[in-house]
Amino acid sequence: MTKTNGMSASAAGQELPPLDSPEVVALHSKMKRRNRRGRVFTYVSAVVIALWILVPIFFVFSMAFTTEDTVRSYPKNFLPFVPFSTETMSFFLSSEGVLRGLANSVIVAVITLVLSTVIAVPAGYAVARYLFPGRDLFRLAVLAVRAFPIVVLSIPLAVLFLRAGLFDSVFSLALMHTALALPTTILVVSSVFASVPYELEEAGQVFGATPLQSFRYIVAPMVLPGIAASGLFTFVLSWNEVFAASVLTLENRTLPALVLTSLSNSSDAFQFAGGFFLMVPSIIFMFFIRKYLFNMWGQVSK
């Protein structure tokens, strides 16, 4: 699917012979007019939708970087970040448990990232490269896990961790998040491996490399960006996850769990600054992941 193919309407219209017959000319100009109107409509829709998404984000960001008085004030100032101040932010960061929650969130997300990548890479490679009895069953099982509701899993895991003395630890939460992230990670990694032709690996072996060497020097460099993207996705998933985090932790709250359980008795400033911290990683990471989004969900919809 190339770019020229994509500009379907006008390109295809021009290929129609004979171009000078009056019917074709009339049809062509009608299509062109319709097309131009359509494009204007499309741009307008695009801008409206983009505003619908951006305005709320923008508002919370400006609230997170202003004085506490402004957060409390009414009616709100529409000018962004006026007056600009780190007062809200420093109030939030100095609140009890916030720094620890931030640290816990980072630790949980990093453990989840490492654990799920280490487990998913071999499995993804197997699904992408080998035809083996049970392959479809495995894919199906992985998809089924993805579709299971999180709430169903967190209560029994909490009970199990309580019994095993692992309750309320960042590590047990990371174990849970890994179970949640693993299916998606496996599917994404396998689609990344599938995009590297096996011939390249084979060629390496023809020239005398062992299978491991050809993996290390040929495949690995090509799949690294994709695997990094899936790792970032895992990180964001863990960073955002709030239900299991609230159920599985008590003292060692992660940031989302902390913000959630203090929603009812915290000030607006605390909430907006918390919202800002919850959103920032995803905004950054979405930028790097967006290329792979369609890989992920194209896979899943198979």
Binding site: A50, V242, M279, I289
Partner: peptide, 15 residues
């Protein structure tokens, strides 16, 4: 358009 995809439901609730 895909920005909200990476956001936690809690953050959106606050939004």
């Amino acid at each position: 358009f895909t920005l909200p995809m990476g956001m936690s439901d809690l953050a959106v609730g606050i939004l």
